[in-house]
Design a protein around this nucleic acid. Sequence first.
RNA 1: GGGCGUGUCGUAUAGCGGCAAUUACACCGCGCUGUAAACGCGGCGUCCUCACGGACUACGCAGGUUCGAGUCCUGCCGCGCCCA
Length: 413
Amino acid sequence: MAAIKFSTQAKDTKTHARMATLKTPHGAIETPAFVAVGTLASVRTLAPDEIRQAGSQVVLANTYHLYLEGRHEVIQKAGGLAKFMNWDGPTMTDSGGFQVFSMGFGADHGIGKNVPFFPGGDLPAGSLPTAGGAESPADLTRSELEAPRKIKITEDGVEFQSPREGNILELSPEISVKIQQRLGADIFFAFDECTSPLSSYEYTKQAVGRTTRWAKRCIEAKTRSDQAIFGVIQGGVWQDLRNQSTKDIASLPFDGYGLGGPVGISRDDIKKVIGWMTSGLPEEKPRHLLGMGSPKELVDVIAEGVDLFDCVVPTREARNGTLYTKAGKVHIKNACHREDFSPLEGGCRCHLCTNFTRSYLHHLFRTGELLGKRLATIHNLFFINELVRQCRDAVAAGAFEDFRQEFYANGAY
RNA sequence: GGGCGUGUCGUAUAGCGGCAAUUACACCGCGCUGUAAACGCGGCGUCCUCACGGACUACGCAGGUUCGAGUCCUGCCGCGCCCA
């Protein structure tokens, strides 16, 4: 008896997009769906009713962050993540696997998961390696572009140093599952090793093997039956590694799949790499693209058969003053909005656009008023959720490919 | 009237004789992809379409010393404090 139930409602004929309902113990999610990121059991600046009003259906918190200072034990006592944060809906938790990258290799080199360049120079245009051949990024990496220095990765697990307290924090498949069971989200992820976009083919191959062995240990460690677990696929931008990892993870009894690690920069590359994975996964289980979901690639990714995706960018950009509109991104802090008394986007039904002007939001950002960040976050989440809803409708109406073409036609994203 | 001190980029500041000249704020832009992120980066005298290149103009004003002055000297002007 599974914790979740995934039932497909409609499939697109021209792409791999599908529309489905994912039932969880805390309610159903209409997919495709954008998962709001609430790392520390909070979608920054928003209260639960605002998250709901922005159209979000599900919230994702993070094991690593909640593990610090023993917060997971408090949350268990509180009755689980959803109850703790008073979110009346489905929740997910990430395994801490991303921190293997961000606190390790990412911190070593000051990079994010998507880098269009190598420290030593630009990546050759259009190069997307299909195997560990001569054109792979491995040729451009140096010896230090291998295993991270700031954290310790072994077969057993990973040791992090908390950037706040400086204390050593250990995470392994068993520890991650244990914490995530205490957090009690409806869906959680297997502990994986998220590789860097700078990792060589050889290193990425090792990480794929380790991720599979860790995935098995996660399944063995799991004891709660009211939670679902998603296995995570790695493999960087190499087709053979992605295929191998997909095959490995799909062979295990997971409730769904996480598509992790770097997947390329350009729209074409992203589509290609995602496609390698979704084409090797069973149709009847949900796929979650981890950490990708800005307007730029969102519609493309749905076309490749992705059902769920989370991304910090819409909320982070909102806090930093970048707002989404149909015409493209708006930097609300720019001087041109100082005396613009029109709404950010006419016709938008969000709380920001129906009540305030660009001028006022500009003012709030310039003066550092917290309300600005909150209104901006509501808007960007609303924009993304609305876009995804339109995708669902388009799939149901058999018009998804037209919608996709139209969305990208004006070049706004 | 006498003594001491002070005058630098919008504001506030740094500046042992060799800097178009520090820092902060402000201002003008940009970036952010499983959140070390209410954060980070760049620009900010003028001009040469850009410039790691070049030219010019700059540290109250006017002279002076010096190869070279925001930095030293003299005078003036403005401001501040103290004594009469």
